[in-house]
Write a protein that binds this DNA or RNA. Structure first.
Length: 428
RNA sequence: GGAGGGGUGCUGGAGUGGUCGAACAGGCCGGUCUUGAAAACCGGAGUCCCUCACGGGACCGUGGGUUCAAAUCCCACCCCCUCCGCCA
């Protein structure tokens, strides 16, 4: 939400609907600014009108060879006045925009109440958690003994929270991304894109990463680019500042990109393995729809993401995030949680959100129905899936007592027919 | 990185200080004509903001500046094209 115009219209209802989510929004200050803006704008425009007429008058006098010095002097004074008013107006708008960009999206009616993840609601489960006749190893142990993951050397060349896949491990990541892209493009109607992984500030503002979450992003020292934390950023921004004819909707894109996150504030958590890294590969789904189709599309997009887990025969569940766990830009989110044997828990592997018009307003992405007026469309996004976490699930789910790991059937064609990963000698 | 050219509406393309929100052409929408279509002819179409309304304001890559008045003049930046260098 929340250009100045929509703030004027729905300031009060917005405050009420956000409730605890809007706790740190300075509502009263915004209200004062809105009122100032209203009066200041009306006044400034009246003065501008007077200037237009006055300037025409000067032109008329000069054309008729009449003296215009007095009129010009008046106009000069008027111009100074207008300048002062415009400056005040700009100042008000700057402040309003700064506030508006930090107001989160309003949750959909079907989002359950609750302060944190403990109140998320399970929607459905697919598959059964396997029972092992032995104690299942965590993926990092499997990966290192198989010689397909090398955390030590990744730490040397980059630092903590970086990983490196080797041999069949690297091949596995590539195979998974290819499988996901193929399923989404061939059976779910998504069009593949390969976007830039560095974007400008406008793109980050459009999807909601800026200004509020700047500390989560990697910056470049000498250039005004930022590393994308998800392909949602470049792909959603594809149509920024455009008005799309409604017959092109829905637009569905899928992209496989690296994602970069500083993970500031998560020190000490999940420091081992592939669970939480500064860089990871993710296949992302992004959709653009008309407002009345977006919730059907959210179901469709979520099912597309689920189809990957089903193809890989990995047990998972779907949960609806409660209000307190909902992201800044989302109106409703389903998380897909895959079963992780070493933790005996379901862990997030995909997050599918309908942002409604929140991002569209920030990025000015509109559509036009027929020959009518432009309106903001709705944007959705979801992981389909996070590749690194899929590797975790496969290693752990398909492990055997001897430390070998079977390759799921659908993946074997992408792995040059390899059916099983076994430890093989390698330098170090 | 160096040299030059350019950024105007859906598109092409005029426009070097006032009557320009913008000629002209194409495309698009509606109408006339036609059995139907094409052609021809007539008409209509930008985006955004303020206002109950009447009406008013803003927008010619972006941001500043000059001026009574800027698409038009000045400055900075961004983007695109051509040539050279470099590189995958």
């Amino acid at each position: 939400m929340y250009d100045i115009r929509s703030l004027k219209i729905q300031w009060a209802s917005l405050r009420e609907q956000l409730g605890a989510r809007g706790a740190d929004v300075p509502w009263d200050e915004i209200d004062t600014l809105l009122q100032d803006h209203r009066t200041q704008l009306a006044h400034t425009e009246t003065l501008r009108h007077r200037r237009k007429q006055g300037s025409d008058n000067v032109a008329r006098l000069q054309r008729a060879s009449q003296p215009a010095d007095a009129a010009i002097a008046d106009m000069r004074a008027l111009g100074d006045t207008i300048g002062r008013h415009e400056e005040q107006l700009r100042e008000i708008e700057t402040q309003l925009e700064a506030h508006a960009l930090r107001i989160p999206n309003v949750p959909h009616d079907t989002v359950p109440p609750g302060p944190d993840a403990s109140r998320n609601e399970e929607v459905r489960r697919w598959g059964d958690p396997p029972s092992f006749a032995f104690t299942p190893q965590p993926h990092w142990a499997l990966g290192e003994s198989l010689g397909i993951l090398d955390f030590k050397r990744a730490g040397k060349i980059a630092g903590a929270r970086f990983a490196m896949a080797v041999g069949a491990g690297a091949q596995l990541e590539r195979a998974l991304a290819s499988l996901m892209l193929d399923i989404h493009t061939r059976t779910h109607g998504y069009t593949e894109v390969l976007p830039p992984c560095l974007v400008n500030q406008d793109a980050m503002t459009g999807t909601g990463q800026l200004p509020k979450f700047e500390r989560d992003l990697f910056h470049l020292r000498d250039d005004p680019y930022l590393l994308i934390p998800t392909a949602e950023v470049p792909v959603t921004n594809l149509y920024r500042d455009e008005i799309l004819p409604d017959h092109v909707l829905p637009i569905r894109h899928v992209a496989s990109t690296p994602c970069f996150r500083r993970e500031a504030g998560s020190y000490g958590q999940e420091t081992r393995g592939l669970m939480r890294l500064h860089q990871f590969q993710k296949v992302e789904l992004v959709a653009f729809t008309t407002p009345d189709e977006s919730y059907a599309e959210l179901e469709r997009l979520t099912r597309a993401a689920e189809s990957i887990l089903q193809a890989l025969e990995l047990p998972y569940r779907v949960v609806t995030l409660c209000r307190g766990d909902l992201g800044f830009a989302a109106a409703k989110t389903y998380d897909l949680e895959v079963w992780i044997p070493s933790q005996s828990a379901y862990r997030e592997i995909s997050s599918c959100s309908n942002c409604e018009s929140f991002q569209a307003r920030r990025a000015r992405i509109r559509f036009r129905a027929g020959s009518g007026k432009p309106d903001y469309l709705h944007t959705l996004n979801g992981s389909g899936l996070a590749v690194g976490r899929t590797v975790i699930a496969i290693l752990e789910h398909y492990q055997h007592e001897d430390g070998s790991v079977a390759i799921p059937k659908v993946l074997q064609p992408y792995m040059n027919g390899i059916e099983r990963l076994t430890a093989s000698p390698r330098h170090g």
